[in-house]
Nucleic acid binder design. Structure first.
Lengths: 161, 161
DNA sequence: CATGAAACTTAGCTGGC
DNA sequence: GCCAGCTAAGTTTCATG
């Protein structure tokens, strides 16, 4: 069962180029994008619309400076469960995403069950986040909090952007 | 030195509301955004421009469906170093971000030094990513790769979006 | 599929309230 | 902060190779 091809029709090089640009600067005008890729504006707009409709472009989001907003502390929190019923895991997953300050949640294989990326105003707030919102959960056996010194974007899977 | 206030002027509730909307849908038109927040279009456009200039809005990016692009496997990779010279750590940090498939890199405190979020086409490609690009680095002592079952966005630090 | 040229929509700017 | 009016710029639609 060779399934190396995505389940979403074909994605040619032009599509990839569009995606590469848009993942870096989604607010580029269609006109500028078309120029950069040597496409007609109408063609470019059409391809972008199709990429959206096919779900290859999920959405577009502004990135805000969380530190400047008053949350300069970041941490990676590993969460380990005691029991592993499917319902319990699913429910906790959802609950974790709803905790104020939680930026993303990974459900992972291994000894730890969840890896969270969180932001907090200071060490005190970080402690409260972990103790009052995570550890408190009955199915949580333990947590491990690692302060983030720095975070950077990787190049991802797309060609040169 | 109380420094609870961000170093970027004031951010009032309207600004926060703008940021909340834009972090969810950056492609909303200024007109629609103004309506939703009960602002005049001119006021709304002005505030958004100021938020950009102040750096509170960093940029805006399209999110692509990496799995549909042919990279359905995700993993969290913990990287531990042998030596910890500042130059070595900095250089490795940069190198990790440049590895194809690496989505984000955290430099963290604790026994592990880096936490990576990566995408790969299949288990084989994932192994190659780790062995050929990470483990191979002289200052890397060990790695731990955890398959990601699922990933979700958290609510973050902004009010209801 | 891609294109160019219409009608339509939006953003950016100005002065004035 | 809001309004109004204006101009430039961008987007969408459609008929056509």
């Amino acid at each position: 069962m060779a399934r190396s091809q995505p389940d979403v029709g074909e994605v040619d090089d032009v599509d990839l180029a569009i995606l590469a640009v848009l993942t870096a600067r989604a607010d580029i005008t269609n006109k500028a994008l078309a120029e950069r890729l040597h496409l007609a504006e109408s063609t470019c707009a059409h391809r972008v619309r199709v990429l959206r409709r096919r779900g290859l472009i999920i959405d577009t989001r502004a990135r805000v400076d969380i530190a400047a907003l008053g949350f300069p502390l970041r941490a990676v929190v590993n969460v380990r469960l005691g029991s592993h019923t499917k319902a319990g895991v699913t429910q906790l997953f959802q609950a974790l995403t709803q905790i104020p300050g939680v930026i993303e949640v990974f459900h992972v294989a291994g000894e730890d069950d969840f890896v969270l990326h969180v932001a907090a105003a200071d060490a005190h707030a970080l402690r409260d986040l972990v103790l009052e919102h995570i550890t408190v959960h009955p199915s949580v056996r333990s947590t491990e909090t690692h302060l983030v010194f720095d975070r950077r974007d990787g190049v991802g899977v797309l060609p040169a952007g």
